[in-house]
Computed example of a mutant assay.
Amino acid sequence: MLPGFGCELHEGEWGAVGSILKWNWLVDGEPQHTKELIEFADENNKSITFRVLEGEIIQIYKRIAANVRADQNGENCLVTWTVEYEKINEDVPDPDSIIDFAYNLTKDIKTHHLK
């Protein structure tokens, strides 16, 4: 598990559209907290979209959402993350730390499933 990372169900059911998750994670060594709404889930296509509702990150982005999709081809699996965001102003950096988090989370999941 990634250090400083945690996710819990706040409202609804795991994986269900309309459910809200609480996430705790580290960004550049600083603790971050978010509440995210599951906007879209498609079990057949192994795709889910989260939209951030609350947290430190909302202070610099008007809107931020992430979609993760897993495509399997035999024993191989390709995971694609798409992050859509709107900055509050042009001085706000791109969300590189979120991309790094998604990459590390994907690696952690892979390691867990290969045990």
Rank of each mutant, 00 (worst) to 15 (best):
L2S: 05
V79R: 04
T82V: 08
E90N: 12
D71E: 13
A70I: 09
N24M: 04
R63K: 11
D94G: 10
Y61R: 07
V17S: 02
H33E: 13
T34W: 01
F50S: 08
N44M: 14
T82R: 02
M1Y: 05
D71K: 04
I58Y: 09
P95L: 02
M1P: 04
E30G: 05
E86C: 04
W23T: 06
P95V: 03
R63C: 05
H112T: 03
E43D: 13
Y61A: 04
G74T: 08
L9E: 15
K62W: 07
E43I: 03
V79Q: 10
D71H: 03
L53Y: 00
Y103G: 08
P3H: 06
K87C: 00
T80G: 03
Y61M: 05
C7N: 12
G4P: 10
D94T: 09
E30M: 08
D91N: 15
A65P: 04
K110S: 04
D96K: 15
E8M: 02
V92K: 11
E43G: 03
N24K: 09
K110T: 05
L37Q: 01
P93A: 07
D91M: 14
K46Y: 01
S19M: 07
E75T: 14
D100A: 15
D96W: 12
W25D: 00
F5E: 11
I57W: 03
G6C: 08
G29R: 05
A70N: 12
L21M: 13
K35S: 06
T106M: 09
N67C: 12
Y85P: 00
G29D: 11
V17L: 01
L26D: 10
P3G: 13
I20R: 15
K110C: 02
A16W: 14
V68Q: 06
N73T: 12
Y85N: 05
G15M: 12
E11G: 00
K62N: 11
I60E: 10
D71N: 05
S97H: 14
L2W: 08
P31S: 07
V52H: 07
F101I: 00
T34Y: 00
A41P: 02
E8D: 09
K107C: 05
W23R: 13
L2E: 07
C7I: 10
E36G: 14
K62A: 10
H10N: 12
G6S: 12
P93E: 12
R51P: 01
F101Q: 09
G55Y: 15
V27G: 12
V27H: 15
K107R: 11
V92L: 04
V92D: 02
C7F: 06
I38P: 02
P31M: 07
I48Q: 13
M1G: 12
E75A: 14
E13V: 08
L9V: 15
G4R: 04
L105V: 09
G55E: 11
E43N: 04
K22W: 03
E86V: 07
I64E: 01
F5Y: 13
V79S: 07
G18R: 06
I57R: 04
V92A: 07
V83N: 05
R51G: 01
R63W: 11
S47D: 09
R69Y: 03
E36L: 11
R51T: 11
G6P: 00
W25F: 15
S19D: 02
A70Q: 09
M1K: 00
I58K: 08
D28R: 15
G15F: 15
A102E: 11
N73G: 04
A66I: 05
G55N: 10
I64F: 02
T111A: 09
Q72E: 06
L9F: 10
A16S: 13
K22G: 05
V83C: 05
T34E: 01
